[in-house]
């Protein structure tokens, strides 16, 4: 499937874009992260979380949505 992947803050500086479509055939969050690391090796040393449906995804979770966000550490307030 095609996943609309959105990058925020520091992550968008690494990817040089704020959003793109990524073809992904797996299901697991870990597989999707492997794909991202191949595309953007700098992400490996970077702290980030994945979110789907406005909820943070656990490492062992399954990707069910066609929109995924990559979130760097929060800095609100």
């Amino acid at each position: 499937m095609i996943i609309k992947t959105t990058y925020y803050g520091l992550i968008s500086e690494i990817t040089h874009c704020e959003s793109e479509e990524i073809a992904f055939e797996g299901l697991a969050v870990s597989e999707f992260k492997t794909l991202l690391f191949e595309k953007y090796p700098l992400l490996k040393g970077t702290v980030f979380q994945l979110a789907q449906n406005n909820t943070i995804l656990a490492e062992e979770a399954t990707i069910t949505n066609h929109e995924i966000a990559l979130l760097p550490p929060f800095a609100g307030g």
């Binding site: 979130l71 550490p73 609100g76």
Partner: peptide, 24 residues
């Protein structure tokens, strides 16, 4: 809450870092 903060530095020269990302 997923809010991100880019700390913009003052008096930046050509070779200087212009910013860093805040972390709570």
């Amino acid at each position: 809450v997923p809010v991100f903060g880019k700390e913009l530095f003052t008096g930046v020269n050509n070779d200087d870092k212009t910013h860093q990302w805040k972390v709570n």
